[in-house]
Amino acid sequence: MTDDLRNYTIGTLARTAGVNIETIRFYQRKKLMRIPERPHGGIRHYGQQDLKRLKFVKSAQRLGFNLEEVAQLLHLDDGAHCKQAAAVAESHLSDVRKRLEQLKAMEAALAELLEECQKHSGEVACPLISALQS
């Protein structure tokens, strides 16, 4: 199978990549994926490169990259822009670490409130609800 073979319809491409057809169309509107030409009276076909690109987008999203960052990475995918791609990833990693700090603070606050709830069982005022109301 070569990259020139256009052996996937949009439905087959979606099933193979584990996404919905509308996901592919959305990525096309966002210019993350190409829209293949439609032969006169025919069906558009996609190839291995399209599948590879679709899997790349989904993998990047699983790592938390937003679509703008994914577009940047796709633009840099020519083998000559590794430093720029690393800069995008470093910025994203910084954001992830900030979110982790926020999540740890949330976890500590919730754990403390739950501990207070357990100490005050049977009382009218629930410490958790009181804290959220103030």
Results as ranks from 00 to 15, higher is better:
residue 41 G to F: 09
residue 85 A to Q: 10
residue 44 R to Y: 02
residue 98 K to T: 01
residue 64 G to H: 07
residue 18 G to L: 08
residue 12 T to Q: 15
residue 56 F to T: 10
residue 16 T to D: 01
residue 31 K to R: 11
residue 58 K to Q: 10
residue 97 R to Y: 04
residue 94 S to E: 10
residue 37 E to S: 07
residue 25 R to Y: 10
residue 22 E to M: 11
residue 15 R to I: 10
residue 81 H to Y: 09
residue 27 Y to P: 09
residue 21 I to K: 11
residue 30 K to L: 15
residue 62 R to P: 01
residue 80 A to Q: 12
residue 32 L to F: 04
residue 13 L to M: 08
residue 21 I to W: 14
residue 42 G to Q: 14
residue 67 L to I: 07
residue 78 D to E: 11
residue 92 H to K: 08
residue 71 A to Y: 06
residue 62 R to V: 13
residue 75 H to C: 05
residue 30 K to M: 14
residue 98 K to M: 08
residue 30 K to T: 06
residue 15 R to T: 13
residue 30 K to Q: 14
residue 41 G to L: 07
residue 66 N to H: 03
residue 58 K to L: 05
residue 41 G to P: 11
residue 76 L to E: 08
residue 49 Q to Y: 05
residue 15 R to S: 12
residue 92 H to T: 02
residue 85 A to K: 03
residue 82 C to D: 13
residue 63 L to I: 12
residue 106 M to C: 14
residue 66 N to S: 04
residue 69 E to P: 01
residue 12 T to V: 15
residue 72 Q to V: 02
residue 92 H to Q: 09
residue 102 Q to N: 06
residue 18 G to Y: 04
residue 57 V to P: 12
residue 27 Y to D: 05
residue 103 L to P: 01
residue 28 Q to N: 13
residue 19 V to N: 10
residue 89 A to Q: 08
residue 43 I to Q: 00
residue 25 R to F: 06
residue 102 Q to C: 06
residue 47 G to F: 11
residue 24 I to P: 06
residue 91 S to N: 11
residue 82 C to V: 10
residue 94 S to L: 10
residue 42 G to V: 15
residue 75 H to M: 12
residue 59 S to E: 09
residue 35 I to W: 07
residue 98 K to P: 04
residue 56 F to A: 00
residue 92 H to N: 02
residue 83 K to P: 05
residue 18 G to N: 08
residue 24 I to T: 00
residue 26 F to W: 09
residue 37 E to F: 01
